[in-house]
Design a protein around this nucleic acid. Structure first.
Lengths: 207, 207
DNA sequence: GTCTATATCTGGATAGAC
DNA sequence: GTCTATCCAGATATAGAC
C-alpha cells in the first residue's frame, strides 16, 4: 500500500504534478536503481497516472537522467571554497570527512545509486568534472614542503579517506547480518564515525 | 572398474553443458547483476539454446542463487586459520589486506555484485554467517592488554581497513573519469595499494 | 539432452476521449 | 492536463518434436 506523496506533504495547496513526479521518481530510482524501477511504481507513489509520466518527461530514460544529474551533483559535499582557505591540509581533510559523513547519513542510498549508474554508463560522469583532487593535492604538497605532513602518495591517501567515509553505507546489509547489529547500532556507529576517521587521518599524516 | 564408453560420453556431455552454463551465467550476472542480465545473453555466451537453461536450472532465480552462493563465499579471503596463528593483531590485519586486495584485483566485479544483491535481498547473507570479526576483535584486545596497539574501537577500525581495500574497485569509473586516469594507471595504483594501506594500518595502530 | 516454436506476462510507450 | 484503453517489444518459461 503506497501513500501518494501529495498526501504526505504538509501544504496541500496544489503541488504541481511535475514536482510530485520528480519526488516520486527520486525515491524509487534511488532505492531500486534504473533496472529495478518501474514507471508504474513511480506513478503510484506520485498519486497520478502512468501516462502522465510520459507527458511530462518523454521517457523513462529522460526521467532517470534528470534525477541522476540532480543527485550526482549532491554526492560530493560543497568544498570548493574550502580548498582556497588558509588552513592546513590535515584540517581540510578533516572538514571533508565531517561534511561527507553527514551528507551520507542524510542520504544513505546515494552511494549505491551513483556507483551503479556510472558502472552502467560512465558517460554520465564525463559531463561533470570534479576539480577536487588537484586542489587537495596542491595543498598537500605545500604542507609537505613545510614538513608538516608525512611523505606519501596523496591520491592513495585521499582515496582511502573517501573509502572510509562512503563504504560503510554500501556494506551496511552485510555488516548488520554478519555481526548481527541493529539499525540503531549502525546509526550510532555512523554518528561516531567522523571522529574516528579524523583520528586515523591525523595518525597517518603525522610526520 | 571401467565404465562403458557410451555412459562415460553421456556423463561427460552432461557435465560439460552444465559447466558451460555456470561459467556463462557467472560472467553475465557479475557484469550486469540480476535485473540487468538476460537469459538469452547467458545462452549465447554458453553457446547453447535458451531452453537448456531452464532444463538444467529451473528458473532465472534458481540459476542466480546458485551463482551468488558460490561467489559470496569467495568474497572474503580465506583467513580462518590465520586468526589462530601466534602473530600480532597488526600482522594479521596486514595479511588480510594483502589477501583481500589480491583477491579483488582478480575479481574486480565481485564487490558491486555482492553489494547489489544483499541490498535487494539480505536473506541471502543470513545463511552465511561470518565469524571473522569476533576472532579479530579477540586478537585486538589481547594486544591492547599488552600495550602493543593503540586504544580504539576495533569495529570502526576493521570497517575502515575493509573500506580501503574494497571501495576503490567500486569507485573506479568515477575515479577514472573525474581525474582522468587510464586503466593501466588504475592497475598500478591497485598494485601499490596493499603496501600503502599497510603503512596506514601501522600508523593508526602504533601505541 | 537438445532444439524450434510458442505461450504468457510484464513493462514502456502511445492514441484518443474528455 | 488528465484519464482509460491499448499497443507492442522484449523477456521468462513451457510444449513438443527429434
Amino acid at each position: 500500500m503506497v501513500k501518494p506523496i501529495s498526501q504526505t506533504m504538509e501544504k496541500t495547496e496544489k503541488i504541481s504534478t511535475e514536482v510530485k513526479i520528480l519526488a516520486a521518481a527520486e525515491e524509487v530510482f534511488l532505492k531500486s536503481g534504473y533496472d529495478g524501477s518501474r514507471m508504474q511504481e513511480i506513478a503510484d507513489l506520485a498519486g497520478i497516472n502512468k501516462a502522465m509520466l510520459h507527458y511530462y518527461f518523454r521517457s523513462k530514460d529522460a526521467l532517470f537522467e534528470r534525477i541522476f544529474e540532480q543527485k550526482f551533483s549532491q554526492f560530493f559535499p560543497k568544498i570548493q571554497e574550502l580548498t582556497t582557505m588558509p588552513i592546513s591540509f590535515t584540517e581540510k581533510v578533516c572538514i571533508y570527512v565531517e561534511l561527507h559523513t553527514n551528507l551520507l547519513r542524510q542520504n544513505p542510498y546515494l552511494p549505491l545509486f551513483i556507483i551503479n549508474t556510472v558502472h552502467k554508463n560512465n558517460d554520465f560522469v564525463k559531463k561533470m568534472p570534479l576539480l577536487l583532487f588537484s586542489e587537495f593535492a596542491k595543498s598537500y604538497y605545500t604542507d609537505l614542503a613545510a614538513n608538516k605532513v608525512k611523505d606519501l602518495n596523496p591520491l592513495q591517501f585521499l582515496m582511502s579517506v573517501m573509502s572510509m567515509c562512503v563504504f560503510p553505507f554500501l556494506s551496511k546489509p552485510i555488516l548488520c547480518s554478519s555481526i548481527n547489529i541493529s539499525d540503531q547500532d549502525f546509526d550510532t556507529l555512523m554518528n561516531n564515525r567522523p571522529e574516528e576517521i579524523k583520528r586515523y587521518v591525523r595518525a597517518i599524516l603525522m610526520p
